[in-house]
């Protein structure tokens, strides 16, 4: 089974069967659901530190992540699909993050934005309160490098997440395919 990587601008997934007077679109229901899901991801407004400002930049007019369907930023986890961990997670915050993640409805996705959320980043050594990577607390789908990452990097992460959703594969399936095909 191949990873079906559809570019973000791809039209509706499926093939058109020409018939006189128009056509019929043939598609699988899974593909349609994944296509719909990936193009309307509502992020949770969750920023702990510097990366939150770059997330705001990505929301502003110049970078404008609403082009990809992310504009409905929600303040409550119960209405959000994706949580962008923008900033350092410390020991006191970790239970809160877990709770926010638990409150989000399924299916839910996580983006670890920046070095701190990925690994503790600049605050890895000699600190007594920093969680060394948000994936110690909740599972992460996409990691973004940078301190803080540029808005373009965040956009790329969001598009990568879309591709992951459209492929409909689990983390283990992606890993196996990556090992087999090297891509």
């Amino acid at each position: 089974m191949d990873v079906k990587v559809t570019p973000p601008s791809a039209p509706f997934p499926g093939s058109v069967q020409e018939i006189p007077g128009g056509g019929i679109v043939l598609s699988t229901l899974d593909d349609v659901i994944n296509w719909a899901r990936s193009n309307s991801l509502w992020p949770l407004v969750f920023g702990t530190s510097c990366c939150a400002i770059e997330m705001m930049s990505a929301a502003s007019a110049k970078y404008d992540f609403s082009r990809f369907g992310f504009e409905v930023a929600r303040a409550t986890p119960r209405q959000a699909d994706v949580i962008i961990i923008a900033g350092t997670i410390v020991n006191k915050m970790a239970p809160v993050l877990k709770r926010l993640f638990d409150q989000m409805p399924d299916p839910k996705y996580v983006i670890a934005m920046g070095a701190c959320a990925t690994s503790g980043g600049p605050f890895f050594y000699n600190t007594y309160s920093v969680v060394k990577g948000a994936d110690h607390v909740i599972p992460v789908d996409v990691y973004v490098a940078g301190c803080p990452p540029r808005p373009e990097a965040l956009l790329h992460a969001l598009i990568t997440l879309q591709e992951k959703i459209k492929s409909g594969l689990t983390r283990d399936q992606i890993r196996t395919q990556f090992a087999e095909n090297g891509k």
Binding site: F124, Y125, N126, T127, Y128
Partner: peptide, 11 residues
């Protein structure tokens, strides 16, 4: 004299 072997990773 604070020691915390769990959280502090010394360089």
């Amino acid at each position: 004299d604070y020691e915390d072997p769990i959280n502090i990773i010394k360089l």
